[in-house]
Design a binder for these strands. Sequence first.
DNA 1: CCGCGTCTGTCAGGGAATTGTCAGCGGACA
DNA 2: TGTCCGCTGACAATTCCCTGACAGACGCGG
Lengths: 220, 220
Amino acid sequence: MRCLIVEDDARIAADIAQALEQAGFRAEHAADGESAWFMGGTEDYALIVLDLGLPRIDGLTVLKRWRSEGVDIPVLVLTARGSWNERVEGIDAGADDYLPKPFRMEELVARARALVRRASGRVNPVQQVGRLALDTNRQTVSIDGRMLNLTQLEFRLISCLVMNAERVVPPVELLEQIYGDDDSRDVNAIEAVIARLRRKTGPGVIGTRRGFGYFLEQSP
Amino acid sequence: MRCLIVEDDARIAADIAQALEQAGFRAEHAADGESAWFMGGTEDYALIVLDLGLPRIDGLTVLKRWRSEGVDIPVLVLTARGSWNERVEGIDAGADDYLPKPFRMEELVARARALVRRASGRVNPVQQVGRLALDTNRQTVSIDGRMLNLTQLEFRLISCLVMNAERVVPPVELLEQIYGDDDSRDVNAIEAVIARLRRKTGPGVIGTRRGFGYFLEQSP
DNA sequence: CCGCGTCTGTCAGGGAATTGTCAGCGGACA
DNA sequence: TGTCCGCTGACAATTCCCTGACAGACGCGG
């Protein structure tokens, strides 16, 4: 699950990134409004964390532009404590939640999770696809109720498939979703992870459509 | 998926073309603004990569003309790094994304993909022609609601027919649409694919107009 | 700092699905 | 009725995908 952190202070950005990555996100970073706008408009994030005080283009402006362009990614806005008018403006601009600075990282992570959950229209964190169940809160995957012991990478990959259930996901897209623009890797890396996953899930869970990509088997 | 590269430097154009073709596009090339304008206005591309510094007509002018004519193909603009006003002008002219030169090819490919994905999400992904329904999002084809298990090639071919519904498509055009300018293949290859498709769809879906080409049956 | 185990990307070999070609056949059209 | 065009089954070539092996990276405990 990819998220975008828009924050001009590199230190803070790195801290947030680390916290979110631990929570299972793949964090990317934009340091100014301009690049934030491009990234948020072109990439497919599950969440955007937006600091308002930005160089070049103001955070609020960026947010308004996104919304006017139809970008409906949930946005968590970081505001200075007590600055009420910023909040009001943020509401108008289309923010989904606020976090007054300074904040504890756990708070941010919790809100991030809540936002993503809400956005994907789920009340509970467990998603069931066929025999497979994914718990985004605990970061666990079970099949027929039996827990799987997955690595970080395997988990991310199967999450992608769950997010895109009812669709066949091309390997290139998985590459992009999992590693980002870091294109140092081969499509074969995906194949390898898929193979390892299948060894753990057993057959009949992850399907292949030759020439198209991978998908989760729906019906038993 | 066809894309148009508007670039006056032949070397760069060739490089971009190669990268995009590897990514599954079929690339065509315009070297000056005038032909670019014509091609973008008459052909149906999924994406246009536009360099701004052009002979004859300036790239921005071309872009504005397209937009004023209702051409809504996503346009990826190549700008010189840091040329701020070019970007702003580009926004006004209707560009969908930017890429500062010089750039890595992988970056271009990634953005191209993102743009196309975003654009294709705008329109209704399922098109119905007669008893046949094509879902461009899930990459599936169903007939009377029954899913067909198609190969990559079969899917591309039937997509072409759907795009050109209510028209009889000559086999040569199908060859071109599916394989690009790679003319190493025989028209018979198309016939073979058609035959395999018909075996899956059953009769009454793909028709033949002897001497002209193939078409999709409209009425039940 | 070293040894150990785990995770992960790459590589190469093999197998299977896909696809181009060929040749024979049958119907359409003059 | 002859000719041409398109259809189709068979086969070979190709592409795509799977998998086991291996090595580098990383983390951890001693």
